[in-house]
Amino acid sequence: MLTIERAIVDKIIAHARADHPDEACGIVAGPEGSDRPARFIPMTNAERSPTYHSFDNDEWFRVANEMFDNDEEMIVHYHSHTSTEAYPSRTDLDYLRSSLADPRVHRVIVSTQAPDEVEFRSYLLVDGEPVEEEVQIVESYG
């Protein structure tokens, strides 16, 4: 189960809306060894595409170094789908099944296909398949 603060969810949704019609992407970092997403880090979609996303290499290098310096790790990797439901696409699955993907990272997908609705879902990769997990939105971790 992904437990995440409402303020972070709101930032992810705002980023997805702001980048629409292109996919938005980013991460939420947290203390190493923790499962608490704490620091929202919007990233640039280097593809500038409504159907695909990737991090800008220079930006990712800078963010990875910041996380290392702050004893943080990626807890959430998020991106948006602009014209489909919040379910991993074939491209998403190819990446998740690659050796680069950390199976502990929560994969959040936000669908912005409906202008007045938002679909916010999270997945983990289990035995090579995406498994939707419950998302618990809390006011604070307090």
Rank of each mutant, 00 (worst) to 15 (best):
D22R: 05
I4N: 02
N57Q: 13
S54V: 10
D94H: 12
E47N: 11
V9D: 07
P88H: 06
P42R: 08
A16Y: 03
A86M: 04
E85D: 14
P103I: 15
D35K: 13
A46R: 06
S99P: 02
D19S: 14
M1R: 05
T84M: 10
M43W: 04
H77I: 01
Y95S: 08
R121Q: 06
R6G: 00
V105P: 00
D94W: 07
E133C: 03
S49C: 14
S140D: 12
P115A: 13
D92L: 10
A46V: 04
A18W: 00
A7Y: 07
A38G: 01
E66L: 10
R90V: 12
E139G: 13
N57H: 10
L2C: 00
D94I: 12
I8Q: 05
R62C: 10
G33H: 02
V28Q: 07
A29N: 01
E23T: 04
E47D: 03
E132R: 15
D58S: 11
D69C: 01
E59D: 06
N45E: 00
I27R: 14
D102Y: 09
G26Y: 08
D10A: 12
N57I: 09
E129I: 00
I109K: 03
G33V: 00
Q136N: 13
S89Y: 00
S83K: 08
T3A: 09
R104C: 01
A24L: 09
D19L: 13
C25A: 08
P88N: 01
S34R: 00
L124D: 13
P130T: 09
E139C: 03
V76W: 06
H15D: 15
D10R: 06
Y87F: 01
E73Y: 04
D35V: 11
S122H: 02
G33D: 02
C25G: 03
L100C: 01
F120H: 10
